[in-house]
Amino acid sequence: MSDELNELYQQVILDHSKSPRNFRRIDPADRTARGHNPLCGDQLTLFLQTEGDVIRDIAFQGDGCAISRASASLLTEALKGRRQSEVRALFDRVHRLVTTGGGATEDLGKLAVFAGVHRFPARVKCALLAWHAALAAVEGQTQPVSTETPAD
C-alpha cells in the first residue's frame, strides 16, 4: 500500500465520506448554491441559514466521490458558526493546501487532512467543489458554479 494513498484517503476522509455530516436540506434556506464538476459528474447543493454575517446552520446534498463528499461534510463542520466574510480567506487557504500541500495548517483543524490531495492533481477539483459552492453561496452568486470555467 502506498503511503501517498493512505495520505490521500485518511481515516477522517473515509469516515466523512461514509457518514457525511449535515447531509440534509435546509428548507427554507437563506442561501443556496449548486456546485458541479462536469468532468466527473460530481454535483452538490449547499444550504445556508444565516443571521447577519454569521452562518447559523449549513448542510449539503449531492452525489460524488469519497473526496468530494468528505470535503463537503468537513466544510459544513468548519463553516457552522463562522462569519460569511471569513469564507473567502478560508477558501484561499484550503485551495493552497490541496494544490501545493503547503501553508499553515495548525488552525485549519480537521481540514488539514486534505494536505495529501496535492499529490493527486486529478483529485484537486473533487476536494474544492464544495468550497467553490460555499464561496458562491456567501457571495450571492445565483448561477451554479462549475469546477471548469468556460476558458478551460
Binding site: L5, Y9, C40, C65, A66, I67, A122, R123
Partner: peptide, 12 residues
C-alpha cells in the same frame, strides 16, 4: 466505491 476513488487506488 465511487468510480473515481476506484481508479485512483487502482492507479497506485
Amino acid at each position: 466505491v465511487h468510480a473515481h476513488d476506484l481508479v485512483t487506488v487502482a492507479d497506485q
